[in-house]
Structure formats: C-alpha cells, structure tokens
Simulated assay, not measured.
Amino acid sequence: MNEHPAASRLAAAAGLPAGRPALTLVLPTFNESGNLAEAIRRVGQVLAGVGWEVIVVDDDSPDGTSALAKSIAVENPRVRCIRRVGRRGLAGACIEGMLASSAPVVAVMDADLQHDEALLPQMYALIAGGEADVAVGSRFVAGSEVKGLSRLREFASTVANETARRMLGVTLADPMSGFFMLRREIVDAAAPKLANQGFKILLDILSVSPRTLKVHELPFTFRDRVAGESKLDSLVMLEFLGLLVSRYLGGALPVRFFMFALVGLTGVVVHLISLRVGITVGRLAFNEAQLIATFVAMTWNFFLNNRLTYSDRRLRGFWGLTRGLITFYLVCSVGVVGNVGIAGWLNSLDQTWWIAGTAGALVGAVWNFSATAMLTWRVH
C-alpha cells in the first residue's frame, strides 16, 4: 500500500529508516478490555498509508486490559503495551507513553471509542505538513457534536474549559480535550515541567511549553461509550483545580502540595473540634488537649492524604497502612513539637484557644509535606 505523502515527507525530514513508525498513538487505559481490540482495529483502518504504532499504557487494570493488549501485540507488531504497577493517573500514563515513542509525531486518544479515529489522518496531515504544531479534536467548535456526555458532565466540561481559559489565558475552545496530536519534540521539551497528576494533559502541555505553539482545532462527534465506565470523579476534579492553581502561580505550587494543603485545611477543622471537645468535655488543660487534638488531626490527614493526595501511590493492606501511619507520625514529630510549643505560647498571651490552636496546626505544614512525601509515600 502506498504511503501517505505527508508521512513520506516527515519520515525523510526526520531521517527515519524504512519501516519505522512516523506516528505513535498513545492509548491510556484502565478497565478497557471491552473496547481495546475494536479501538486498535479502527485505528489500523483509518491510518492505512501512515507508518503508525499504538502504545497501550495500562494502569494495571483488574479486568485484564494489559494482558489483552499483549495478546494483540503478539499478532500485530505495531502494538506495544506498558503495564504500570503501583502508579496511577491519566496524565502520567499519557506522558509515559509519549516519552516511550521514537516517532516524530505522537497522539493521545481514549480507548473507549468515544473519540472519532477517522479524524487522525487529518490531524496527521496538519502536523506533517507544518500547518500546526498541535492538532486538537474539539467538542466545542462549529461542526462538533457531543453525544457521549450527560448534561451534568457537559456542563462541568463547559465550566472547566471556561475556567482554564480565564485563569491561564488559553484561547482554545476545548483545552480539556483528551484527543490531540503534536510533534514529539514539544513533549520532550515540556516533560520536566509536566504534572503526573491530573486528568487532562493537553492543557498542561500548552501551559508549560517554552514557545508559542500553532494549534489547530478540528470538530468531531464525541460518541457514546460502548463498554466500561467513565473515570471522571470528584478526585479528578480536585486534581484539575490543583493543576489550574499550580499553573496560574507559574508552577511555584505543585499540584500534590495543593491537594495536601486542602487535606490540611480539613485537618485544621478536625483539630479544632478535637481541641474544643478536650477542653470543654474532657476538662483537659490546654496543652494536653492540644497534644491529643494534634494526633487526632494527624491520623485524619494520613488516611485522607492516602485516599486523595497520593491516590496513585496509595498504601494498602494492614501492614502497608500501619507502616505508613507510623512513619507519618514519626516524620511529623518535629512539626508536633513546634505545633504544641507555639500554640501553648500564644494561648498564654491572650487565652484565645482557637487562634493558638490554628497557629500551632499550621507551623509544620511544609515540613510535613516534604518529609511524608519522601518517607511515607516514597515520592522522590
């Protein structure tokens, strides 16, 4: 079969040897065994004439998605599979897949059959022909149609897109799109600054790119999901909010720290409630009540951080949780000393228990974040 003209030009410009892929399509998956084979079949049909490959990046799906991908790869050498064990997240999966490519052009598409694979050749022609650095399948430009979103999710997407445009100055109609294609060199340049947490990687790439990119949006029909369930949940929305805040502040605040801080705010409430109960119900001296409240809040923070902030590195099982909780206590001990000392000192000055308690609870925040990240959840 004759090769696509744009593919021939791009392959020659990149110095690719014959038979090497000019386009890598990354399919991030979690529990997509019911859709994956059909998605790959459709991709092969529409990309005839283009030297393509598919990298399935699976987050250790319990439904056997990675095993299915590897069985497909046995029959189809264009397919590869990366099985990620002990780490989760759509953004991280997309980054890992794109960085595993040696092709000059990379694309990301969902494996749930909601994205229209027929758009891929047009996107590729724009990139290969130099008309665009990034081609985006957009749900919200003229000619698009959205079928696969509930009214609530469509409203949430609209609000998220508008928020992203206002906060980050992004001019795209659909910066939250998960269907896009770009030159791999753009990903390579942006990779050190990209956040592994989050649900939408396109917005992050556009935000941290060191140069202005030519972006072309293309309309498509966002179809109904065939099998499986959507991965969008409240955690995803929190991570998205964290990404917006991080990028708005120029990356000075990591997404994970934003999540840690949100958990810490709930911990302050728990701390103050525990402190009040200790003082009024338990008839404890302030320092005693403050110490007990500190450990109650620390326990609360550990389990909530394990569920939210470190969802991709979640500690499981009795021994995993026990080890994590003990190390969390130990590494926060320095913060506890400062917490109790400062709170007691402030309370002795004006006897305002809630001001003293709040100040003490905030003293060890930065230490707690950095120390527990390294020693409890082992993020380096």
Rank of each mutant, 00 (worst) to 15 (best):
H380M: 15
G169E: 04
L330P: 07
V26G: 08
L202A: 06
H4W: 05
L243S: 15
S71H: 10
A190W: 03
T221G: 10
L330R: 05
V170C: 14
G357R: 01
V56A: 05
R139C: 05
T212R: 14
V270P: 06
C81P: 05
N35G: 14
F295W: 12
P77W: 01
V255M: 10
S333C: 09
G267N: 08
R316W: 04
T294E: 10
L275F: 11
L218T: 14
R283F: 03
L346A: 06
S246H: 11
A69K: 01
N161S: 08
L265C: 12
L203Q: 01
G44Q: 07
D59K: 13
T221H: 04
R83G: 12
L346C: 10
W354R: 04
D59E: 15
R87N: 13
E117Y: 14
G341V: 01
E288L: 15
N287R: 13
T221P: 13
A107D: 02
G317I: 00
G198L: 03
W319C: 09
S209I: 12
P175W: 03
E96R: 13
F240S: 12
F155D: 12
M123V: 11
F155M: 11
A107Y: 01
G34A: 02
T294D: 12
R313N: 06
R247W: 04
K70F: 03
F222R: 04
L90A: 15
G129P: 11
T294Y: 14
R378Y: 02
L120N: 08
A356M: 04
E217W: 02
R139N: 01
G178L: 10
L284K: 10
V277W: 12
Q114K: 14
L315I: 05
R9P: 02
L362I: 12
A73Q: 09
F303L: 12
I279W: 12
L119I: 00
A18W: 07
T212Y: 07
Y329S: 15
W377P: 11
V281D: 07
T280G: 10
A7S: 13
G242K: 09
R80E: 04
L253D: 08
A6T: 06
L119E: 05
F303V: 02
L168G: 02
G267F: 00
R316V: 08
Q114H: 13
G324H: 00
F260K: 02
